[in-house]
């Protein structure tokens, strides 16, 4: 039982990160029907932005909650700007062309970011500084939860509540929902849809960057290709929850995270070696596509964002 609880805590920790990233996939898809393949790389960009901020502002030397907050918000801001730049200069010019064109642009963008970072920072992993002292707390038998795990849960929940507020309680949020449902109708209401789309990229990118910084507090090794596999799993999470559906992205993220660690913990009993960890998400993807292509909370393509 203790190990089960422990696996679950670990799974939900990773799952929260997947959920944060999945939100960006799902929002952009909801608005543009575009699978933004570069989104996983924004998670990596966020981790690097946080790393550089921590080093240059000297927060690596003396850990503090203040330092953590500055690094987190700074990385989110940098990623939001980069996300908007990608939308503006890569996606917007090809928006009127076929879906295949935008998809290929997205894949190209992803590779571009990855290898730009390899070029600048080299492929050698770097160690992200601990911004807070990491303690372990026993909460259930032998199961423990660490400061960084608590941080991941707390920050993820906070960000998701904030996102929910923006989408359902603000004017720009209402515009996002309108645009996701009918772009031309939104234009006819006087909505500057280009701005709303840029804003959506900014939001999604900021969440992914938060995921990057949070992950780095849990697992400090960062490298330019770290966004590939995590990004893919987050994408699967978005599809599992129902792409375009916000609560679905959160649910999908948590489920994928939990499934993954449970396979690592218990898979060997049923003949699945723990090295199959990374395959879990994709097995789930295939199952979803076969059984319920709209995803758990998806309603065909009706409700978006």
């Amino acid at each position: 039982m203790d190990t089960f609880v422990q696996q679950l805590i670990n799974g939900l920790t990773i799952g929260s990160i997947y959920a944060l990233i999945a939100l960006g996939y799902t929002m952009v898809y909801g608005i543009l029907r575009l699978i933004n393949f570069a989104h996983g790389d924004i998670y990596m960009v966020g981790a690097y932005a946080g790393y550089l901020l921590a080093i240059y502002l000297g927060f690596d030397a003396n850990p503090s909650i203040f330092g953590f907050i500055v690094v987190l918000l700074g990385a989110m801001l940098v990623a939001a700007l980069i996300g908007m730049a990608i939308e503006r200069f890569a996606y917007r010019p090809v928006r009127k062309f076929s879906r295949m064109t935008t998809l290929i642009t997205a894949i190209g963008m992803s590779l571009f970011i990855e290898y730009l970072f390899v070029f600048i920072f080299s492929g050698t992993p770097r160690s992200f500084p601990q911004l807070l002292q990491n303690d372990n707390y026993t909460i259930f038998g032998n199961a423990t939860i660490s400061t960084s795990q608590i941080l991941i849960f707390a920050v993820s929940i906070l960000l998701m509540v904030a996102l929910q507020y923006i989408i359902f309680r603000t004017k720009i949020g209402k515009a996002m929902r309108a645009v996701s449902f009918n772009l031309n109708s939104a234009k006819l209401m006087g909505v500057n849809t280009d701005f709303v789309i840029a804003f959506t990229f900014a939001l999604g990118s900021a969440l992914a960057a938060a995921g990057g910084v949070l992950t780095a507090q849990y697992n400090p090794k960062i490298e330019p290709l770290m966004g590939i596999i995590t990004g893919l799993k987050a994408f699967v999470a978005a599809v599992l929850g129902g792409i375009g559906n916000i609560p679905g992205a959160v649910l999908g993220g948590l489920l994928i995270g939990a499934a993954e660690t449970l396979v690592v913990g218990y898979g060997s009993y049923i003949g699945i070696p723990s090295t199959y960890r990374d395959a879990v998400a994709f097995a789930i993807l295939i199952l979803v596509l076969l059984i319920r292509p709209a995803g758990l909370l998806g309603t065909n393509v009706q409700e978006k964002v």
């Binding site: 209402k174 309108a178 449902f181 009918n182 031309n184 109708s185 234009k187 006819l188 006087g190 500057n192």
Partner: peptide, 23 residues
């Protein structure tokens, strides 16, 4: 751009109505 015409006083009820079904 369409969104700039609205403040100038032009509005349209489009073909197929185009209501926001999710709102």
């Amino acid at each position: 751009a369409t969104h700039r015409l609205v403040p100038m006083g032009i509005a349209m009820s489009p073909e197929g109505r185009g209501v926001f079904a999710n709102l």
